[in-house]
Simulated assay, not measured.
Amino acid sequence: MRGLTHRAVDRAAGMPPGTTSAYYRTRQALLAALVRRLVDRDQGELQGLGEEQPRPRSADELAAGIAAFVETRLTGDGRERSLARYACAVESARHPELREILVPRENAARDAVRDFLADRGVEDADGRTLTLLACVDGLVFDRLVGGGQVPVEEIQGLVEAALR
């Protein structure tokens, strides 16, 4: 986060010095724009994922879908964005205005998990969905910073626990 400056953004974007500060006058405005952009990209991806994937028919299918998303988009090709998201989350502890931007949003992928749980009679499917996804988020964080794996068996265990 210390490296996020107007000059650094100008340099990385190949823009003349001062361009970024013309749009975002303060570092806080720059940081808020970064967080909004991350959230917008994540939401677009999650919305598309939920719409393009068939609804899971079993706990194994749901776990496999979550595991594939973790492997390809969160810890694979999307590794840098995931790390940036976690850095922004930590920064939001000092800047409460960022927390509001980072609040989990509704999207088609989250709806698919909630609908799967609700269709199986899980009480408080909304709450269980948030808990399940928070646990998966913890596994992703561990893999990104600790080099650990996120085995599909772990995700299957989380899905099965959400169903109980």
Score class of each variant (00 low, 15 high):
R143N: 11
E97I: 13
P104G: 04
L117T: 10
R99H: 00
V150A: 15
G147Y: 06
V150W: 12
A108R: 01
F141L: 08
F116N: 07
G146D: 04
D126R: 13
E154T: 10
G138A: 04
G148D: 11
G146L: 05
E154H: 05
D142E: 12
L117P: 01
A118K: 14
L133W: 09
G146I: 00
V103F: 12
A108W: 00
I101L: 10
G127L: 12
V145M: 04
T129M: 05
R94V: 15
G147L: 03
E106N: 12
G138R: 00
R94H: 15
V150F: 06
T131R: 13
P104W: 01
R94T: 12
E153L: 15
D142F: 04
V152Y: 13
P104H: 01
L117I: 03
P104L: 01
V113E: 02
V152M: 08
D124P: 02
V152C: 14
A125Y: 04
T129R: 11
D142C: 00
L144G: 07
F116T: 15
N107T: 06
L102Q: 11
G127R: 05
L102Y: 04
E97T: 14
E97L: 15
E153H: 14
R110S: 06
R110Y: 02
N107G: 09
A112P: 06
R94E: 09
C135N: 09
V145K: 02
A134T: 08
V140Q: 03
A108P: 06
V103D: 10
C135H: 04
E100D: 15
D111A: 06
G121T: 04
R128I: 05
T131D: 09
A118D: 10
D115T: 10
D115P: 00
G146E: 09
V103W: 14
D124T: 08
I101N: 12
R143Y: 02
E100S: 15
E106H: 11
